[in-house]
Simulated assay, not measured.
Amino acid sequence: MTEDDVLSEFRASEALLEGHFKLSSGRHSGHYLQCARVLMDPMRASRLAAALAAKLPREIRSAIDVVISPAMGGIIIGHEMGRALGKEAMFLERPDGTFGLRRGFAIEKGAKIIVVEDVVTTGLSSKEAMKAVEDAGGEVLALVSVVNRTGGDVSFDVPYHALVEITFPTYADDEVPAELAAIPVTKPGSRK
């Protein structure tokens, strides 16, 4: 699946939005990728996950024991990655503000894990999720996401693979351009 194919999936599902958005990272943007919308079609989610699984190097694909994703945004793509890879899929939650496993989920000590996200922007949630996996006894082999919005400004201690890189500009609260500030802000992400 090419980058154009991925963006076509977003456009077809009306998941590529324009306006003034406050992202989960706290930054502002004139564009928002509503991954929940692109993933609401099970066949589309399956295609995207299969394409993402195919991007993983063979040595990582063959070593994976479990797929783990952070709630909320990563649950659907994480589940579909589990299906594409033939592996169990679990998710992390933040009931007390910090990611952890609940619902009877547990990681065997030394289990080889990939962390799956919908979108990575600042990498903070991804790093928190990977730390939670390591604290639970797992070894993170890679981070994967449908969309990479980091602009190349974020590094991870593990390989990072994404289906598409999108570099819409983002702004701190004190950097928002006047034309964007003139548009009422919407906060579409899962984190309040």
Rank of each mutant, 00 (worst) to 15 (best):
V154T: 14
I64N: 00
Y160D: 11
D135A: 13
S24G: 14
L143M: 13
F10E: 01
D118V: 09
A15E: 08
M72A: 14
V185T: 15
H79I: 12
P169N: 07
A36T: 11
T121I: 07
S46M: 09
E108P: 12
I60Y: 07
D173T: 14
V154H: 06
F21S: 07
G19N: 05
M81R: 14
N148E: 08
A45V: 08
L56D: 01
L101F: 10
S8Y: 05
A89K: 03
S125C: 12
M90S: 00
I76Y: 01
E139N: 10
L23N: 10
P184H: 09
G74Y: 04
G30Y: 01
V185L: 07
R102L: 12
I68W: 02
V67Y: 01
T122W: 03
A50N: 04
E117K: 03
R58K: 14
G19S: 11
E59N: 14
L48N: 02
F105R: 13
G97Q: 11
V147A: 02
A84P: 05
R11G: 06
L39W: 05
G97C: 12
S69L: 04
E93Y: 11
K187L: 07
D96S: 13
A111M: 06
A182W: 05
N148P: 08
G82R: 04
P57M: 11
D4G: 07
D135H: 04
E59W: 09
I77C: 11
G152I: 09
E18N: 08
I76K: 00
P177L: 10
A111P: 03
V154E: 08
A162T: 00
S190Q: 06
G86L: 05
S145H: 02
M81F: 05
L33G: 02
D173Y: 09
Y160C: 06
L52K: 11
T167M: 06
V164I: 15
V116F: 01
M72K: 09
T122M: 04
L180K: 11
D96P: 02
L141T: 15
R149P: 08
R191E: 07
K127D: 15
G19C: 04
I76V: 15
